[in-house]
Design a protein around this nucleic acid. Structure first.
Lengths: 223, 223
DNA sequence: TGGTAGATCTCGAGC
DNA sequence: GCTCGAGGTCTACCA
């Protein structure tokens, strides 16, 4: 990891063209060859960057102080250094990486484990039920044996309803499954998504992640 | 901008919970109070971060070496420093910011200016034609006076077709406009999006940004 | 390699 | 304050 603080201007030419006028900034050159340029605000997104794999060439002679970063697609990032204020390097090694909890995959596990949250007598067919246009999060049967397709989201908005609609259209063409009902399940369902879902006869289910995890924990404690 | 290289472990509790085991990393504290933690790879996304506005508290006494970053929503980022390898600060000032070219807004301008790209005899009604569910990018009439709604994307995929479909459904309820045809225009149209659009009777138009800009430049040179 | 869906998405505009 | 759409989205996963 190389840290450079420098007054510089930057030009990017690739999927779009963009220019950064001269100003003091932080330039990060990482061990994988990637380069990013940061201003003194915003935690998440750099002003400009080149993702790996890419190669950095530092100009010499006439081109001294001009860094050119290129990737395979031919995108270019050109950094023109005007004044170097700091330049240091550190060996950090490979990062052990982030351990996450609380994402959609876990919600899917929890709901599959407690499928009766969908209603008395529901039984799981399978998670990630494959279709031609992608896997349905959960497929199950209700107490009457009717097929139910569940689309799971952390935040339920209109896109999720469209996605489920496409699945339902497809699943309903399968005589072994039809008629298939839809349930849109999320930790939070946006009003417009609820309206659209309801209009299409799709059920809405708001999930309480902490409560579900609690139930799961209780269940685990029984064994 | 404060740059710290340190062996540290990190815990995030907020929209999810996440943990980073002890390892050497770069910690950036920016002038807006934001904090980000970088490994020695990936240009774009930090391992962990807290977006502004947020406040950083460095622990003292028993809590020495423990940094706590909190935002208004109550999300917490806790950084436990085990060994500081570098610590320096720089005043960078406010960045003049990025100048972009080649985005959807510009495409819309260009297409509106050369509406005949859609076909001989087309006339513009207006850009950003307002509807209850949002503005239609371009509304125009073809040579026969029929209404045409255009959805513009840089990259045309299935979502864009869905969006245009919703607009068409709505616009076709307006007796002053109906019947309304749809055109899906993008610099690149994904095969599946093309299939869906065609299936719904929506036309597809691939736009050449450089050529359109060239035409525009030629046009400007005439005046 | 290409397509799809998720993300602590972020960010900005419009209401 | 929210809602929605765009992003050089990036990234992981799967065919």
């Amino acid at each position: 990891m190389r840290l450079v603080i420098a007054r510089c201007s930057v030009d990017y030419a690739g999927r779009l063209t963009a220019h950064l006028p001269s100003a003091p900034r932080l330039i990060l050159v990482k061990a994988d060859g990637s380069v990013s340029i940061h201003a003194d605000d915003r935690a998440y997104k750099p002003l400009n960057w080149m993702s790996p794999p890419c190669t950095l060439k530092e100009g010499t002679g006439d081109e001294a102080g001009v860094w050119t970063v290129v990737n395979k697609a031919g995108e270019k990032l050109i950094i023109t250094m005007e004044e170097i204020l700091h330049d240091s390097s550190y060996e950090l090694g490979v990062d052990p990486g982030l351990i996450k909890d609380g994402v959609e995959a876990h919600l899917q596990e929890l709901l599959a484990d407690r499928i009766e949250i969908l209603g008395e007598g529901h039984t799981l067919i399978r998670r990630e039920y494959p279709t031609a246009i992608g896997p349905v999060d959960i497929l199950c049967r209700d107490a009457n044996g009717a097929t139910v397709a569940v689309e799971l989201k952390r935040r339920g908005d209109i896109d999720g309803v469209e996605q489920l609609t496409r699945y339902l259209e497809l699943l309903n063409r399968d005589p072994h499954l039809a008629p298939v009902k839809g349930v849109f399940a999320a930790q939070e369902i946006k009003p417009q998504a609820r309206v659209l879902a309801t209009d299409r006869g799709i059920g809405c289910l708001v999930l309480d992640y902490d409560a579900m995890r609690g139930i799961e924990d209780d269940k685990l404690r029984l064994f």
